[in-house]
Design a protein around this nucleic acid. Structure first.
Lengths: 191, 191
DNA sequence: CGAGTCGTTGAACGGAATCAATCGTCGTGG
DNA sequence: CCACGACGATTGATTCCGTTCAACGACTCG
């Protein structure tokens, strides 16, 4: 786990934030890299002239802003979604430690390859035109068998690039067709 | 440049492939990581039951399959698009060298952060519904001022998730509206 | 010279966005 | 503690725009 390696190497320092507070905002100079210890953080980005879009939702154990390690400024904002405890690591210190701790660096590198793969998967999904196929592909990729939804339906809709209305309708259709089972926050893919 | 660091650390070994040949294919076990020295390579992925989609087009200087460094199998295929010379680095050796060469690892890490940022940008673009706005946003992100197109229009269309017809029509509209200038393979954004 | 592909345009259809309204739930403050 | 506001989930109706199918010229490559 990356956070453990970070902790071992850099020591701990953490902050507590309430829902609605920002860990950092788009355009701020990058001073720190963070890890979510508890709670949930939403990475959002303000588009040129449109609604803000959610880039990622980070849960406990995930690091955020690792992709900004070599950047001057954060390219998105981190909004606390559920009151969170967040570990803070100085970017400068981290960069220094990376020079001498291959283990830490590899850990980080591995984390990044996972991000890349996830993002490519999303891109792939978003290039599917049919809402039904898109949702099915997403579910197949996301859930191995069955799973509790950790995101709101609305968030998932946004993530896969559908209006939430279209998404609601699609899962309803899929359910009546018997291709998925659903009860509240529980989803199951029927093969 | 990553390829220089790789070269310095691992020494050189390269292969030449002609258009239509595969560097590796989806599902193969990951033995090597590659860098394009000359030519062009297209990373494609076979979707569950659909047309293959282009994940990335790699030009001279770019590394490919870095994201597979910790994977067992390639998750896409690499098809040579324009006769290419390609540097080959053993994954095993590379992983070993990463343990002892922070400079190389940092270089790779930096490369990955760039990939992540690019992919996020694409995702952001693909969540814009209007074709016109999507194309404009893409152009603003991709071209600082003006630029020769290094991809075919068709490829760009696929990249931003539009049918090529829709893309042709959109840039035509944008041109008649005077928002872009175009002559052959040259594009310019009018502010 | 033919096969294949890109670029381009036309026509028609369909499906997803959009607008709108309702209900339930959760958190918050008076 | 309850009223209120905010937001998620849901459904209906309508519109529109991007996909799809189709056809053609131009170009390149073998």
């Amino acid at each position: 786990m990356l956070i453990d390696d970070l902790h071992d190497t850099l020591g701990s320092k953490s902050i507590r934030l309430k829902k609605g507070e920002y860990v950092f905002t788009q355009g701020q100079s990058v001073e720190n890299i963070f890890c979510v210890i508890q709670g949930r953080v939403r990475l959002m980005r303000q588009t040129i002239e449109g609604a803000p879009i959610v880039i990622h939702v980070a849960f406990a154990g995930e690091s955020i802003a690792e992709a900004s390690l070599f950047s001057e400024k954060y390219h998105c904002s981190a909004l606390v979604d559920i009151g969170a405890e967040i570990a803070v690591f100085s970017k400068k210190t981290l960069l220094n430690r990376l020079q001498t701790s291959p283990k830490l660096t590899l850990s980080l590198l591995q984390q990044m390859t996972i991000s890349v793969r996830d993002l490519r998967m999303l891109n792939e999904i978003k290039s599917i035109y049919s809402a039904q196929e898109r949702v099915l592909t997403f579910l197949r990729a996301e859930f191995k068998q069955e799973q509790e939804l950790d995101l709101s339906l609305k968030d998932i809709a946004q993530k896969i690039g559908l209006s939430h209305e279209a998404f609601y309708r699609t899962i309803k259709t899929l359910e009546t067709e018997g291709r998925i089972c659903r009860s509240g926050r529980h989803l199951e893919l029927v093969d």
